[in-house]
Design a protein around this nucleic acid. Sequence first.
DNA 1: TATGGATCCATA
DNA 2: TATGGATCCATA
Lengths: 220, 220
Amino acid sequence: MKIISWEHLIDRDPQGTNGLYTETPEYSAVHADVIQAIGNTVWPPDSDRFTIYPESGKKRGMGNGVTPIKLGFTTTLVELGWTLEKRAPRATNEEAKSLRGSRPGAFDCHFEFPNERISPFVVEWETGNIASSHRAVNRIGLGIHKGYVSGGLLIVPSNKLAPYLTDRIGNPRELRPYHDIWKQWTSTEVAYFGIIAVEHDDESFDVPKVPKGTDGRAAR
Amino acid sequence: MKIISWEHLIDRDPQGTNGLYTETPEYSAVHADVIQAIGNTVWPPDSDRFTIYPESGKKRGMGNGVTPIKLGFTTTLVELGWTLEKRAPRATNEEAKSLRGSRPGAFDCHFEFPNERISPFVVEWETGNIASSHRAVNRIGLGIHKGYVSGGLLIVPSNKLAPYLTDRIGNPRELRPYHDIWKQWTSTEVAYFGIIAVEHDDESFDVPKVPKGTDGRAAR
DNA sequence: TATGGATCCATA
DNA sequence: TATGGATCCATA
């Protein structure tokens, strides 16, 4: 796949050049890993590029599913030393009580910096419903607020790719009006939040469709 | 239905007693309307209370659907002068361009104060997926940030009611860890955000289940 | 076309 | 039991 856009909504670190997180060695490492992993996201599985079957996913049973898409991405990150599905730390006893035992779930991908100067970096590859992207952003924001995350990235299919996938998938256009509130998170010294849009390299009716599962209302 | 909890996450108005939004006449009016409307939320439709068929909604075809539930609530608010499904104002030309034409959708319920001292108040009755609740909260936050809303309420089924409804419905417990970031919205002088949990008055196997899906729309 | 929603699935 | 996700629906 290729990267269509990469926006920084929050970019702050007193130790970076000009106080920017994106001007730190830690970010450089993350940045390189993510670029490599997106490049390794291919379809069909044995290809060296991502070719999409260009059928609209708007209607039932049509277009492409999403689960298999991210496989190349996550596999690459694991090879580069990232961990998958890392949950937020358990709350203290005090806190657990006030939260009534609830805590946010796992981050898709999680990287602990070897030097431990700053907290880990997380990436959410979001091919769920657009509403789920809102939760993912809130989850990153909470992690930054609490300090167990220093930065996070949300990856969504581009406005050109999304229509070929399951209806109502997250997409950059629909998230844009909300950028203003997410830019407001201001509670920590060190923080990064970015949104990446990724896109297929090619379109062809000669590749198989990405199969759909039987989740949600498909299951009848 | 009855109100199990009503939490104020943001409560600010320089003109209210102690600077609180909840200590203004505008809030008193909204508060009274919402209480009345929740009281008028009943099942079955001709009842004077809300009695739920206490079957778990976890599995397919079991438990209760959600669409018909809010009918008494919204009908009451309309009678009290509220409007339904009010969208955010169209962006200016400049802004629309940067947003690429995207704007957030409608608020469930919307009330314009007769005196127009402060911007309208909105209520989201959320019986969608929990992820959808995150979007609803973000939408209220955006409205407050932009100034076209002065306050908002999210209504979700209580932790006791939710298990009888469609799986993964919004619920107070699962939203709790995120309160900390929502409390951070600090860009405006006047702002209110609250979360209400509502619950059935009674349980009985003698009432019909709230229908799911297409049946639900037929039932009203 | 665009946006909120409703429903059920997979997995720890 | 708990949480992230995937899929399709209704309607303006």
